[in-house]
Design a protein around this nucleic acid. Structure first.
Length: 428
RNA sequence: GGAGAGGUGGCCGAGUGGUCGAAGGCGCUCCCCUGCUAAGGGAGUAAACGGUGAUGAGCCGUUUCGGGGGUUCGAAUCCCCCCCUCUCCGCCA
């Protein structure tokens, strides 16, 4: 949610943001400002009436205590009419507030000035590429073939048991997942994050807080009977951890890391784009969340990027850093970097992390504030998050990039102590 | 799931229809005193919204005692619904 003051004072900036992100009509802004006027007029009138009523009620109290009942009765008669007026005005204010709330929730975050303006993913900026794609003197197999050959993943049985996109991991496949989990979390902890385990379902308020509702509600699965959503990312529960809180300045920054499965409905395309582990309805991820002082958030964004990239470095995977353009970034972000690993057999880049600064957009929805000084007025924090990292495509890249002529897969050395094995052997 | 108790300011805790935004305590901030420390004295200490100011300070007002609705001229206080916490029972990894 963006600041109402920003809409009032810089309507053009907000309209530009709507255009740049390609989300919603700029007319929203004008409608919102009209509703705001209506609301304020009604509020003022309501408050004036209430003020008069309070005065009169107080007089009644005094008169009754003094035993002047007839005098009190007279005033009561006068006030009783005000009841209806107040009720009517309250309804008007309520209506306007509801409409205003709905409208303001439709306004996307304003992109940071450093974000390139663009229409879609083709306008994203490749900032830097790290590592060298491996070369092979044989035809590298795609990860789904390797996974099959070594019996690491079973998508067919997953589809039988649940549906497509819900994999089983088996044997060394499962152990690799568990190894990655510990590897990522240990690294995050060493880099100053507090480890956390969170609920895996959230209520609508939390989903709204981080911006999954109302805008992208077909991203999430639903549990209507209990009004829960299985989390599409641990960003949701972890960022909402401090919802409706006022932190003291010394509480900042807060840095949390957590492992969680993630569930996403999003109806994907078909074919090789989504084959194997490329796109799943259930996947695992380690998420990094930072809650920081507003002045620090862009420094924190750089650090967060380093946190995620250092894990890729350690795994010795070639990757590149993308700065997302206005048209390809989400509703809630002010600035986003995507990290993509090289998939040697598919010969394409796979997104494994999205590192975002939301500035105060989420904090305003969640009312996460801090008090700059002991007596000072609370101000909104800035929130950030980034994957550190998403498992399936990492696994895909590890398998494809590290395959050997004999069909075995050598794992990077940092993982050996985590997995308990150094290679996935060719079948006997 | 059943039965009971309870949800009040940063925290603890009083308050059962009118000068209660709410006693008292703790904590915190500032000041005084004490050559340091400890102790003591005094003052202050919620948020949101609206109006007025320069979208600052200040001032005026409204709302908020878990949430929503109702009764009343007037609700922390009475009534209804919901949520949450705790205790006991049941069930259960």
């Amino acid at each position: 949610m963006i600041d109402l003051d920003t809409v009032r004072n810089h309507p053009r900036r907000v309209k530009e943001a709507l255009r740049a992100k390609g989300l919603g009509s700029p007319d929203l802004v004008d409608t919102l400002l009209e509703v705001d006027e209506t609301r304020r007029a009604a509020v003022t009138e309501l408050q004036e009436t209430q003020s008069r009523q309070n005065d009169l009620s107080q007089q009644i109290g005094t008169l009754k205590r003094e035993g002047k009942d007839e005098a009190a009765e007279e005033i009561i008669e006068k006030t009783s009419q005000m009841k209806e007026t107040i009720k009517r005005l309250k309804d008007e204010v309520q209506d306007a507030e509801t409409r205003q709330e709905e409208l303001v929730l439709k306004l996307p975050n304003i992109p940071h000035p450093s974000v390139p303006v663009g229409a879609d993913e083709s306008d994203n900026e490749v900032v830097e590429t790290f590592g060298n794609p491996p070369t092979f003197d044989f035809d590298p197999a795609p990860h789904w073939e390797l996974a099959d050959r070594h019996n690491l993943v079973d998508l067919e049985r997953g589809a039988k048991v649940t549906g497509s996109g819900f994999p089983f991991y088996l044997g060394k496949g499962a152990r690799l997942q568990r190894g990655l989990l510990n590897f990522f979390l240990d690294r995050a902890r060493e880099r100053g994050y507090t480890e956390m385990q969170s609920p895996l379902f959230v209520n609508p308020k939390s989903a709204e807080g981080t911006g999954q509702l109302p805008d992208k509600d077909d991203l999430m699965y639903e549990v209507p009977r209990d009004d829960f959503y299985p989390i599409p990312t641990a960003e949701v529960p972890v960022t909402n951890f401090h919802r409706d809180e006022i932190l003291s300045a010394d509480d900042l920054p807060r840095q949390y890391c957590t492992y969680s499965p993630c569930w996403r409905r999003e109806a994907g395309s078909y074919g090789s784009e989504v084959r194997g582990l490329n796109r799943l309805h259930q996947f695992d991820k380690v998420e990094l969340v930072r809650i920081v002082h507003p002045d620090e958030s862009y420094r924190a964004l750089d650090e967060l990027l380093e946190d995620a990239e250092s894990a890729l470095d350690a795994l010795d995977l070639p990757y590149r850093r993308l700065l997302m353009c206005t048209g390809d970034m989400g509703f809630t972000q002010a600035k986003v970097y995507d990290l993509e690993v090289w998939s040697a057999a598919q010969e394409r880049w796979l997104e494994v992390s999205s590192v975002s600064n939301f500035e105060a957009f989420q904090a305003r929805r969640m009312q996460i504030r801090y008090r700059p000084e002991p007596e000072a007025k609370p101000e909104l924090v800035h929130t950030l998050n980034g994957s550190g990292l998403a498992f399936p495509r990492i696994v895909a890249a590890l398998l494809e990039n590290n395959q050997q002529p004999d069909g075995s897969i050598e794992l990077p050395e940092v993982l050996h102590s985590y997995t308990g094995f150094a290679r996935i052997e060719a079948e006997a």
